[in-house]
Nucleic acid binder design. Structure first.
Length: 313
DNA sequence: AGCACTTCTAACAGGAGGTC
DNA sequence: GACCTCCTGTTAGAAGTGCT
């Protein structure tokens, strides 16, 4: 019998590329994950991962590929089961108070909500757009049912329903000298103008530390509390900006520029989380919405999605 | 070569469930 | 309720690997 915990750990380790990274997502020690995967291998009688110490990433064996396929089918079946149970319960109406950061206004959320309301036409929404720390405050005050945030969630009354780590990218306009590069390092950006978040944004401190560690004093062209503006001034060629990739690999999100992976040891990936109020008994419609949202987010592969965003129109 | 990062193993702790 | 067993977690230390 395959343990669901072990299967969840295995999937997360594969998704993160390392047991260490998975342990941060799952909030358990790396040894616990290693042992669960070891027990899975013992149960199935075959190695699932090609491990190597150091900084190389985990690789799936043939048996591991089969198990990943099995895990996806289990996930798909459980969603189908949930859907059928919802149909039995007649769950087609409800209201959701949702909080999202500005960067999701055009990336992912509109498409997801449209798909969701096609399935659940009786649902209505109130969507509030704020910075991540403000969203958490609103969540724990019960002004929101759930919220999506970037950055570490440290509030003791907020609990994380889903999260993943997103690598950092540099947004480069079509006519910029760095436009053709496959990857960039922080030192590559040093001689170009940068547009960065201002002090009201939680990412400012992270970026400041990152640039300081790289011994780079950026030529700051613009500071703002708007990620949309950061992206748009970069698209116009005014400056480079450091951003997370779009969650959805739609061409139109690339605009006039492209996202180039920031491949630098000092560039730590950003945490992207779906949060709910700890201990709060959520209404069934909100739980349904949360489950659907989580399921869709889990289907997304942000790194490949970002790589797929090619130089645009 | 030294450091940082990672995985693995052993020892131990605590919770849940079963039995008396 | 007390005791036992099993499961799953943590911590500490060893050892391998990659980067500078």
């Amino acid at each position: 019998m395959i343990s669901t915990t072990a299967l969840r750990y295995f999937v997360e380790a594969v998704r993160c590329g390392s047991i260490r990274a998975a342990s941060e997502i799952l909030f358990v020690a790396p040894s616990a994950i290693s042992r669960q995967i070891g027990l899975l291998e013992e149960t199935l009688g075959a190695p699932l991962l090609e491990r190597s110490r150091g900084r190389s990433t985990l690789r799936l064996t043939a048996a591991g590929e089969l198990l990943m396929r099995y895990a996806k089918s289990v996930d798909s079946e459980s969603r189908r089961l949930r859907s059928e149970i919802e149909a039995i319960q007649g769950l087609r109406r409800g209201h959701v108070n949702l909080g999202i950061p500005e960067s999701l206004i055009r990336d992912f959320m509109p498409g997801f909500m449209a798909r969701f309301t096609r399935r659940f036409p009786g649902f209505t929404f109130n969507v509030q757009v704020y910075n991540s720390p403000q969203l958490i405050e609103m969540l724990v005050d019960d002004r929101l049912d759930l919220c999506l945030t970037f950055g570490n969630v440290t509030h003791q009354d907020a609990t994380i329903a889903y999260q993943r780590l997103l690598p950092l990218y540099v947004y480069v306009s079509a006519d910029h000298p760095l436009h053709g590069r496959e990857t960039l390092r922080l030192s590559d950006c040093a001689e170009h103008g940068l547009a960065l978040p201002d002090a009201t944004m939680w990412t400012k401190q992270q970026y400041d530390e990152m640039l300081a560690k790289a011994k780079i004093r950026p030529r700051l062209v613009l500071e703002t509390n708007s990620y949309e503006l950061l992206r748009n001034v970069s698209a116009e060629g005014m400056a480079l900006s450091i951003l997370t990739p779009p969650l959805q690999d739609t061409q139109h999100l690339a605009g006039r520029g492209r996202y180039v992976l920031l491949k630098d040891p000092r560039a730590k990936p950003q945490r992207f989380s779906l949060c709910v109020h700890r201990g709060r008994n959520l209404p069934l419609p909100v739980t349904t919405f949360t489950n659907e949202l989580t399921a869709e987010l889990e289907q997304l592969e942000p790194e490949s999605a970002a790589a797929a965003v090619r130089p645009g129109r």
